[in-house]
Design a binder for these strands. Structure first.
Lengths: 324, 324
DNA sequence: TTGTAAGCGTTATCAT
DNA sequence: ATGATAACGCTTACAA
């Protein structure tokens, strides 16, 4: 049998209440008692049952994290930081990969509520606004403005888009393309596109916009899009890709075509993923560590009953490297 | 207040036992009753409390996953698959990033036990053998043979090492290097090195072995090691890197030095990560999906009281691509 | 300073 | 077929 608080109580010869007090360091306790209890715990190798605690306290110290795909470097990195700060604050993390599957996302949300998690960080969203509003749990989204009541943490997408586009203009590109994953999926990343358009319109420059309608993260499938782009527009000399992974695909394709980078083609990515192969890529770096930290702290604020600002927009940084 | 089984019972006019029965579909229940209960649940928007269930059933339906770093593509990908199969079997996943920090790993193990998880998948190991043996919980390790009682899932590291090395020999390399992260950390990956040595010894070929003593995943710090290697041995014409990330670093450095790949230098990586930039890399692919699947199923076996084989070694595959 | 007892929301064991 | 009631392991008023 597993050792419980009751066994400790019997061994020491006090009530369970007292043991619980020692455990939580509440109330007045003689040092002698404390010591005896500690010893008994050691001896019996006692471990508190967090499930029982959660039930009793109505608090689980668990956060749910719902993202599309943990194997995507952007989410992998941000998750790393979220875990770091959650752990630091005494919270565990339940990992939920939605794969942008509506049913799975919904099931996970229900599962998280049923599991009495103390808060949810959403980096995925495929359901209707009302369904998120109905969650009634501390909630924060990553890079997604779902409604004007659900707090979100993002980086400055518009500025990122502007920085990237301006760089290409400054480098005297004559015909530039904006490439992105599905725009619908991510409202805020759409601002990169808006910024691109604002920079490009009215300028003496040709431009092309392309987006996948993949509702997924099948990076492999970026390839045909990129190939097609260059077939239709072989004279493109600048590309702003809305993710580093996409940018890498472009670089790969242009190598195949024998286009020299940056001489004949300049490429700017987005995210700032720290992965071999992306290290020479000029890109817009999102402050992933800060984003993770703030996502956690927005949740903690809500749990603590504090006011939480609707928007938390963090600055991005242009990393000018080898591909421009 | 939150709706409980009791509220449903009152509304329907039966006992909580009956509601619980409906919930778990146990025993004999009239269809009429079932329907009425279902309706009441819908109406009151009832959600079972998993914490209470776990306490009562002594089963949480949660697995703990301890890995060094979720932002490393290898672990990101394998985690994706683990999550997939866990979910499919009704288990949630608690994500624990150890950062190869002994204290954190130990704390997490305790936390997982306290949280009554039903099993642990360990992809990290920094503690002493006995400490793992003392876990007394369904356990499976990834790519780590800790003792001969703890089941592990891995791919065939020796064969992977042999395949990679043989390829370089077949391609007529004259001087090849084996590069790896810290060998101590990962007993099984060490077999890649053994295989390398077995292939290379007694052949008419020069070879060099280098390993970081980084006890971490600071990929950035691979750079100096790689640079140094080429300074000391500018005549190397083949490299077997024990991870794709390391291989990418080598490719990067050789570009800088103006060495042509594969003409002047051939590079073989390891892992088969699916990341832009690694797509042209010749590498040894680990069957990550199968590994994730089997890690989960080994845990399920243990939970089900079945015999679990000590070792599960899956085949690797040589992907011959652009860098050889 | 310590103890009694109720309560957290479910499940499980007997009854009936 | 359905119900009482104890039990899961812990916390927390309220007492003493």
């Amino acid at each position: 049998m597993v050792v419980t608080i009751k066994d400790i109580a019997e061994k020491v010869g006090v009530s369970v209440t007292t043991i619980s007090r020692v455990l939580n360091n509440r109330g007045y306790l003689s040092d002698n008692l404390k010591k005896k209890v500690q010893e008994a715990m050691e001896e019996l190798n006692y471990q508190p049952n967090e499930v029982a605690r959660s039930l009793s306290r109505k608090k689980s110290n668990v956060f749910g994290l719902i993202i599309p795909d943990i194997s995507h470097p952007f989410f992998g990195q941000i998750t790393k930081h979220i875990e770091y700060y959650a752990y630091k604050n005494g919270y565990k993390l339940m990992l939920c990969n939605s794969l942008l599957n509506k049913k799975k996302e919904k099931e996970y949300i229900e599962l998280l509520r049923a599991s009495q998690v103390d808060g949810i960080i959403m980096g995925s969203h495929t359901m209707k606004v009302e369904e998120y509003m109905a969650i009634k749990l501390p909630l924060v989204t990553l890079d997604r403005r779902i409604s004007d009541t659900i707090p979100y943490v993002s980086s400055d997408n518009y500025r990122g888009g502007a920085l990237a586009t301006k760089l290409l203009l400054r480098k005297r590109c004559k015909k530039i393309a904006y490439l992105s994953g599905s725009l619908q999926l991510n409202l805020l990343a759409k601002q990169r596109h808006d910024a691109f358009m604002d920079q490009v319109r009215g300028q003496q420059i040709e431009y092309v916009v392309r987006q996948t309608d993949l509702n997924g993260f099948k990076y492999r499938e970026y390839e045909p899009m990129v190939r097609e782009l260059f077939q239709e527009h072989p004279d493109i000399d600048g590309v702003f890709a809305s993710s580093d992974l996409l940018a890498l695909q472009i670089i790969r394709e242009s190598r195949r075509l024998g286009k020299l980078i940056p001489e004949e083609l300049k490429v700017v990515g987005y995210d700032g993923i720290q992965i071999g192969g992306a290290e020479d890529l000029t890109t817009i770096e999102q402050p992933m560590q800060e984003m993770g930290k703030l996502a956690v702290s927005r949740l903690l604020q809500q749990i603590g009953g504090e006011e939480t600002p609707l928007e938390t927009v963090l600055p991005v940084k242009l990393l000018e490297r080898g591909t421009t």
